[in-house]
Nucleic acid binder design. Structure first.
Lengths: 346, 346
DNA sequence: CTGAAAGCGCTAACAG
DNA sequence: CTGTTAGCGCTTTCAG
């Protein structure tokens, strides 16, 4: 309950000096600073964030918009953002919009605009130009992770190129009957991600002169269990089976491996499976995949934002940071070959 | 950038009337309200949360403290809390403290005290009396999920009783050689959860006159992959094997099933496995478990808090809600028998 | 280096 | 029902 006034009284200083001393500003004598600090400590003084934000215009708070917290990719990004922010003394306001359009709307049109956030990080969210403009209009820098965001900075991986790479890995091993397990079209609130990865797959197949069979293009909801169900249907089709599957996420690759086991198929002997992500569970299954360090992407996004904010503050820019020209960074990835892929059965 | 003043001017009303009109208060003529609303809309007015919080004392913001966002239980709780809060127009400030003591400290001693939260929900966190007092001292209601929190309300399941139930399920099937896979002792930032579940297991064994073999009491980090590694060690011990395993979480139960497969053990024919949680993936593995609806627990916690806050507001209580006597609620659960448990091999 | 004073933008009595 | 008047608790010129 102690306010800065109480601290000032107890320290025998003015409110202004205490404020400067406590927020580590210059132009305060060592003695005054000590005096202020002790008084504050003795009173258990904790500054009111609302008051200081109101007065200074800075919030020390970053918003994070996610479509889900259950899928590995998103919780990993969240973890990276969270750790970076916490260490910098920033709060993280989480908007888990899920798949409900209503929630998405209200977050975008109400929550985010309440001038309470210094910046926002949007993960795998397709924003309309209007939505982006609205955000930019309130002078908040935005960074997008996982896809392009016109006018905002983004961090992403080369989804189409990497899908090609994954597919090529299979082709080089000698596979010709390759299936692709993609994300449900309904999940295209995401940056059209499923579509992009699928395009990469198709391009690679085409380049190799291989057919893309419609019945081997299946989809699931990005979860292990969803992919398991879809893969069972794929592998259970009475007809010819593929000898390899490229799944658009590790979770779906794992679901595929589990389904294969049900049919007595040995991985990779009878069926090769490659995923994409770098999920920790991949090791257990010997999953060949493309690592993308989602946690690192989240941390990087947060760091970039913090730098921008600091720069804005240093420039005396009234707390509202100036977004330095929107940049589009590609995050590094690596192909990790384990034991779920091999040459096709004779 | 438009402030309430601009809206007032444009509407030809006083600031006060606009404030009342826009925040849906009574005592405003329909005409004035309409006038205010149109003016606000035309100017794209969005109220400053800091200003209104400072003036009203209410933040519309709840803090959630979690030890992790990757484990199923926590992300499920998060999801429940998040949805409930969003729908009520509240912000969710997330503190993912992880296992770093430093972070835990700073969150507890800095972040949470900044008077920016109306309430806090702590999941599976053991708070010292001091910490609880500190939080209560700033007049913020707290609710704990997943364990006891002296002085605060809690929502939890009967961990010890349910562990007993799970163990008894195995015993009733005829098992006598039962192993227990518990959480790493290091994870006892949790409400001593591993210990409590283990105690339930031991009690059930004792009641049945069965021996608890130390070498069959193993631990892991609550993840599938961690449990997989531990279970491999358990099942790979040259000596006699258990015929059943009770894992303290579904993720660990699944890791166990995967390990069993590696050794050519059929579940449940050669090894019965029971888990605890209600993880969606359990279905894929036919996992027998105890469902606990973590999402629902999170939603309930949020709802309780919102009610308390509303009550406080209604009571004209300066926004600082009065915690109505701390209650300790037990959340309902159910034993779900699937196909991972059966009578022991002959 | 320090203090006084002027707000940040809104809400909440209080009179009318 | 509406306008006026005080602040909420801090930061920040601006003098000194």
């Amino acid at each position: 309950m102690a306010g800065i006034k109480d601290v000032a009284d107890r320290a025998g200083l003015s409110i202004a000096t205490v404020s400067r001393a406590l927020s580590g500003k210059a132009n305060v004598s060592a003695k005054s600073r000590k005096l202020a600090k002790t008084a504050a400590a003795e009173l258990g003084f904790v500054p009111s964030y609302h008051a200081s934000s109101l007065a200074s215009g800075r919030n020390h708070n970053v918003g994070l918009v996610l479509p889900s917290v259950h899928r590995w990719y998103f919780s990993s990004v969240l973890e990276g953002v969270s750790a970076t922010l916490l260490d910098a003394g920033y709060d993280l306001t989480l908007y888990n919009v899920g798949d409900q359009a209503v929630r998405r709307e209200s977050v975008l049109n109400d929550f985010l605009l309440r001038k309470r956030l210094d910046a926002v990080i949007a993960v795998a969210l397709v924003l309309t130009d209007d939505e982006i403009q609205q955000l930019l209009a309130i002078h908040r820098p935005i960074v997008g992770i996982g896809g392009a965001l016109a006018g905002a900075s983004t961090i992403r991986i080369n989804d189409s190129g990497l899908s090609r790479m994954a597919t090529n890995h299979l082709i080089q091993l000698g596979h010709t009957r390759i299936a692709h397990l993609t994300g449900d079209p309904a999940l295209n609130q995401d940056f059209k991600l499923p579509g992009i990865r699928q395009a990469g797959f198709e391009a690679a197949m085409k380049d190799a002169g291989l057919p893309v069979r419609p019945e081997w293009q299946i989809s699931a909801d990005f979860t292990i269990q969803g992919a398991y169900a879809s893969a069972r249907r794929l592998l259970g089709m009475g007809t010819e089976r593929p000898t390899a599957v490229f799944a658009a996420s590790d979770e779906m690759a794992i679901g595929t491996i589990l389904a294969a086991r049900d049919f007595g198929l040995r991985v990779p002997h009878d069926l090769s499976v490659i995923g994409m992500d770098g999920h920790e569970l991949g090791e257990v299954f010997g999953l060949t995949t493309i690592n993308q360090d989602a946690r690192g992407q989240g941390a990087l996004a947060a760091r970039l934002l913090l730098e921008t904010l600091d720069a804005g503050a240093a420039a005396g820019n009234d707390g509202a940071a100036t977004p330095r020209g929107a940049t589009d960074r590609e995050y590094p990835t690596e192909l990790v070959i384990r034991t779920s892929t091999a040459v096709p059965p004779a």
